[in-house]
Nucleic acid binder design. Structure first.
Lengths: 362, 362
DNA sequence: TCATCGACTACACTCGTTTGGGAAAGCCGC
DNA sequence: GCGGCTTTCCCAAACGAGTGTAGTCGATGA
């Protein structure tokens, strides 16, 4: 079979077989080999690789089949040279939370899977005076296709300006929109915090405390604002007296909770701006011989691993970091495909576990 | 000044100034520009960039100065094309511990800093049937310069064989040597565990428990073996009865500890093969209304953040992950420079905190 | 004085791909 | 059989480096 069809004088399978037999794994195929094998010109192959519409469907399929069978992969270096940019996307981060970074990384990798791109990472230290220049050098040297910025560097306008200057594509991930839509992915922390407030209010608490995130971080503001909004919707208010500043670390959670516990008429529920601090809160409760949720309900934010390794396991707001990374990568790669983007899929959700319950009757 | 010196008719500063004035930032300089500016041939510039010895010192310095002033950076794509490999090193990992990954990443980045190379990450899922093929595709497509493998993929011989086939450079990080020296970086977990044993023995404990790492992981074997060696050196033995299998997770630490506590003549000290499980042990003690170190001493391994966020803070073995990553990267980049390598700098060390003390007198 | 050596230069070619233009081939309906 | 398409071909020219060969030039040594 498969010798002389009128419409397809070419038998991809046979042709590919032939090549594999003669050259085998000795040499990697180039675009020239494919062109010769398929009996078309180099340019046609190139068009097919780059999804140009100027190719007949039949030809496209035949050539694609051969490419697949022979195992041809266009050389990223050569392509990069011709395109004047590398097939690399960068992730620029300064967030010290390893779990955040790893989740985000994984999400971005999912997002670029199947796109010829690779992920290259670039941590940066915002306390160093030249972190923007370093980032620029990184981008320009490698001629990155684009970068994804995570909080809190994503909130940095100096960095954003530099990116616009270089002309490199970018997507900023932040809890609030700081740029035009194509360059932003919003995490809706405010919404998440509102869920926490609703949950706590529904349980019947009225004396409610909040441990804020680190000063100067957008997410800290948003989480507090969302929490206050949610309480307000339930007719409650967060008294300034019950707002204690934290900095997203475990230790700050411990200290803040100690402060809250020392108050007269202490709160019966508290919302910490992240799980780390919520874990610190549990710790402080334990030291004070109190138990969550019997004495005080505790709600966190992030739903990182720590939320389930502490005991009791933490009621928290799940933030879909990995999905957000994936979406950010997709937005970076094809900014037009965002039509079918259903933002609601990326909203934080409430995860009720064991640290929240009704207030103690007293 | 600086017009016509006999030995240096060339004034790098002036020449560079001229170029910057005419082309400015409009165009990035190429090797040809540098050659023209410096009044030397392209080949000489190339030699200088690639540290060839066939260049007179004076020439080298002048040209380097111009390169620096003009801000010329060789194009990685073009270089990669000519060299037939990319200036990228990959990190292949499957370790689920985010802190480990991030530390390692940072270390590798330190190691490749100043080397024209960039880090690209590749997590892999060993439960998927084609993870080796994926890794191979990743390497071959990008023509990676080399890869660094972290435990536990680093222990995978199928993977190692694949790497040898591809001819890609690699360094495997593991707790024991599994390959020739140039391809290994040993973390000496055995030594670390021995320190833990010595510490516990010195405190005067005699009934000692161990929570092992995950079955099938080299590190689990090494840590147990080292611990037993250390005890033996102090004239103690680890009774099989007091060895409980864990899997490096918090939960397994909790369960293992519960098991140990249920034994008659329970141990007065226990060594968990990582901090996560040690934290689980503290958790279990708390539930049983026991306190470390008063009732039982607990020693962990890794010295990750969790060691200082639990309370009391964990006595543990510090493993210099980041330094190890840095060294691995250096070994990968220039395998010959390892003469001055002082292995002892990378040995684990004992960090005494608050969970270890003398046995209770009973 | 002649041979040798070190430090270059000049040139053509390679790496694998994209892109441009001009031209040709195939197929459509008329 | 003729325009008018669409699809494709062919060739050459980038892209920015590295390599190999042959050859130059001046200083050194015998």
């Amino acid at each position: 079979m498969a010798t002389d069809f009128p419409n397809s004088p070419l038998d991809p399978e046979a042709v590919a077989q032939g090549w594999l037999a003669t050259h085998g794994s000795a040499r990697k195929a180039t675009i020239n080999d494919i062109a010769t094998l398929a009996g078309v010109s180099k340019k046609t192959v190139s068009r097919i690789i780059n999804d140009s519409p100027l190719v007949k469907e039949q030809t496209r399929q035949d050539v694609k089949r051969i490419i697949e069978l022979v195992g041809y992969v266009p050389d990223p270096q050569a392509r990069g040279l011709a395109f004047r940019h590398a097939f690399l996307v960068g992730m620029i981060y300064d967030n010290p939370n390893p779990q955040y970074i790893v989740n985000m990384q994984q999400g971005i990798l999912n997002g670029i899977a199947g796109s010829d791109h690779e992920l290259v990472v670039h941590p940066c230290d915002r306390s160093s005076p030249d972190y923007v220049d370093r980032a620029r050098a990184f981008i320009e040297r490698q001629k990155l296709f684009g970068v994804i910025l995570t909080p809190s560097v994503s909130e940095d306008e100096t960095m954003a300006r530099m990116l616009r200057e270089t002309g490199c594509g970018y997507v900023r991930i932040a809890s609030i929109s700081l740029d035009d839509e194509a360059h932003m992915l919003v995490t809706h922390d405010r919404h998440g915090a509102r869920l926490a407030a609703e949950h706590i209010a529904t349980l019947g608490h009225t004396r409610i405390g909040h441990i804020t995130g680190r000063k100067g971080f957008r997410s800290a503001l948003e989480r507090q604002a969302g929490f206050e909004e949610g309480l307000a919707a339930a007719g409650l208010t967060l008294t300034p007296n019950f707002i204690v500043e934290g900095d997203y670390t475990f230790q700050s959670g411990v200290r803040a909770t100690e402060t809250l516990l020392s108050k007269r008429h202490r709160p019966t529920a508290l919302f910490a701006a992240n799980d780390e601090m919520a874990a610190g809160a549990l710790q402080a409760l334990r030291v004070a011989d109190l138990r969550a949720p019997d004495a005080i309900s505790v709600v966190g934010f992030d739903d990182f691993q720590i939320a389930t390794t502490v005991w009791p396991r933490l009621t928290t707001i799940h933030s879909p970091i990995s999905d957000i990374g994936e979406r950010a990568a997709q937005r970076l790669l094809n900014p037009d495909d965002d039509a079918e983007f259903d933002g609601s899929a990326l909203l934080p959700t409430l995860i009720v576990r064991e640290t929240s319950g009704p207030p103690p009757r007293s």
